[in-house]
Simulated assay, not measured.
Amino acid sequence: MDASDPVHDDLLRTTKELAVYLHAPLSWIYHHAQDIPRYRVGRGLRFRRSEVAEWVAAQRIVDSTTSARASTSLLGT
């Protein structure tokens, strides 16, 4: 099964699998779980990789000084 397969992305992941996917400690996942799109299954939490990927993209921080420098150098000024 291809990792970019939409069906593969829709599988529910455990907190441990999410920690591996995000390269984050399990404690960080539990601490920030209320912010991450999630499902409660019994006593556990589950996450869809596609929804987590969208959430991660929404967390992107654009440094205004870097952006300003980049646009200035592109304009040749």
Rank of each mutant, 00 (worst) to 15 (best):
M1R: 11
M1A: 06
D2R: 14
D2T: 12
S4T: 11
S4N: 05
S4M: 05
D5Q: 04
D5M: 11
D5F: 09
P6G: 00
P6C: 00
H8D: 13
H8W: 14
H8Y: 12
D9C: 13
D10G: 07
D10K: 03
D10V: 01
D10Q: 05
L11C: 06
L12V: 01
R13S: 04
R13H: 08
R13Q: 06
R13I: 04
R13F: 08
T14E: 01
T14K: 01
T15Y: 07
T15C: 06
K16S: 03
E17C: 08
E17K: 02
E17T: 06
E17P: 03
E17A: 11
L18V: 03
A19S: 10
A19I: 01
A19G: 03
A19R: 01
V20G: 06
A24W: 08
P25N: 13
P25E: 04
L26T: 09
L26N: 14
S27N: 04
S27H: 12
W28I: 02
W28H: 14
W28L: 07
H32C: 07
A33Q: 07
A33D: 15
A33Y: 09
Q34R: 02
Q34P: 10
Q34Y: 15
Q34H: 08
Q34A: 11
Q34N: 05
D35I: 05
D35F: 04
I36L: 10
R38A: 01
R38N: 11
R38H: 09
Y39K: 09
Y39S: 09
R40I: 15
G42C: 02
G42K: 15
G42W: 01
R43H: 02
R43D: 12
G44T: 07
G44W: 14
R46N: 00
F47L: 04
R48N: 00
R48F: 00
R49Q: 09
R49T: 12
R49I: 01
R49P: 01
S50H: 03
S50M: 03
S50W: 00
E51A: 14
E51W: 02
E51Q: 14
V52R: 01
V52K: 01
V52Y: 02
A53Q: 04
E54I: 04
E54S: 06
E54M: 07
E54R: 07
W55H: 02
A58Y: 05
A58P: 09
A58C: 13
A58W: 02
Q59W: 02
Q59E: 07
Q59C: 03
R60M: 05
R60G: 15
R60T: 05
R60N: 15
I61L: 11
I61T: 11
I61Y: 03
V62Y: 15
V62E: 15
V62M: 04
D63I: 10
D63A: 05
S64L: 15
S64Y: 07
S64T: 06
T65I: 14
T65L: 14
T66E: 04
T66C: 05
S67A: 14
A68E: 13
A68I: 06
A68V: 10
A68H: 08
R69Q: 13
R69K: 14
A70V: 10
A70T: 09
S71K: 13
S71R: 11
S71I: 12
T72M: 11
T72W: 12
S73A: 10
L74D: 13
L75H: 09
L75C: 12
G76A: 00
T77G: 03
T77L: 08
